[in-house]
Simulated assay, not measured.
Amino acid sequence: MMRGPQFLTIWLLIFGSTSSLAAESELEFTPFVGYRFGGTLDDERTGRSWDFNEASDWGFTLSQPASETTRYEFLYSHQDTSLADTTDPNNAFDLDVHYFHMGGTVDVYQDRFTPYFSGGLGMTYLHPGQAGYENKTRFSLSVGGGLKWYPTERLGIRFEMRGYSTLVNSNSSLFCDSGCELQISGDAFPQFETNLGLIFRF
């Protein structure tokens, strides 16, 4: 199974291949920090629920113009969190959640303050921090919106709210083969984040 870093390489290659389609050569690189919350998995075997604990997130976006009001965009977002039994918070294990998404943005209008909508498709890479638990990769999608402010021609500030939905097969197991897996009921789990980033334009 492909690992998270491999998805990053593939997405960057795909992103780079679109350069000939750009309406202009202006790139935007935006590192960000924020806060992510939400996400519950229901264990069909025990009837218990497991919650993703709220925690900070960080990542970056890399985008280039597709037209006057739209941009292609690659997004990477990472969270160090834990998955905890809702009936026993001491029953928990560390979990890193990585999102690798390719998508874009659509400007509502363009000015020094530019509101926009965003969306993407890609993969969620789940990395448990406990021996005997396996990494898992699942398909996911995201939608969001935000505001860009450009105090100078080359620097800006970006505020965004984004929601994710990661698809999981109903009645499938996660993280390991036997004894410690979660037997999931349901088809997806959502997460939400708010981010603040610094835009560098090239």
Score class of each variant (00 low, 15 high):
164 Y>V: 03
64 Q>L: 10
179 G>H: 13
40 T>I: 04
72 Y>C: 10
123 M>F: 11
121 L>V: 13
174 L>K: 01
137 T>Y: 00
63 S>W: 01
186 G>Y: 08
80 D>V: 06
174 L>T: 07
82 S>M: 04
149 W>R: 05
59 G>S: 10
27 L>E: 06
37 F>G: 11
115 P>E: 15
53 N>T: 05
26 E>P: 07
177 D>N: 11
4 G>I: 00
86 T>P: 05
175 F>R: 06
78 H>M: 03
157 I>Y: 00
143 V>Q: 13
94 D>V: 04
184 I>H: 02
50 W>K: 03
158 R>V: 00
121 L>F: 13
102 M>T: 03
97 V>D: 10
26 E>N: 15
126 L>D: 04
64 Q>I: 15
74 F>E: 02
112 R>C: 09
106 V>K: 02
122 G>C: 07
92 A>H: 06
148 K>C: 14
14 I>G: 08
191 Q>S: 14
63 S>Y: 02
27 L>Y: 15
156 G>D: 04
193 E>M: 13
86 T>R: 13
184 I>R: 01
40 T>W: 02
5 P>I: 03
134 E>N: 14
156 G>I: 02
189 F>M: 08
40 T>M: 03
202 F>R: 07
80 D>W: 02
29 F>M: 14
34 G>A: 06
23 A>L: 08
153 E>H: 12
151 P>H: 02
106 V>G: 08
195 N>T: 14
185 S>W: 02
117 F>D: 09
151 P>D: 06
37 F>Q: 06
106 V>M: 11
133 Y>A: 08
89 P>H: 02
83 L>P: 00
71 R>D: 05
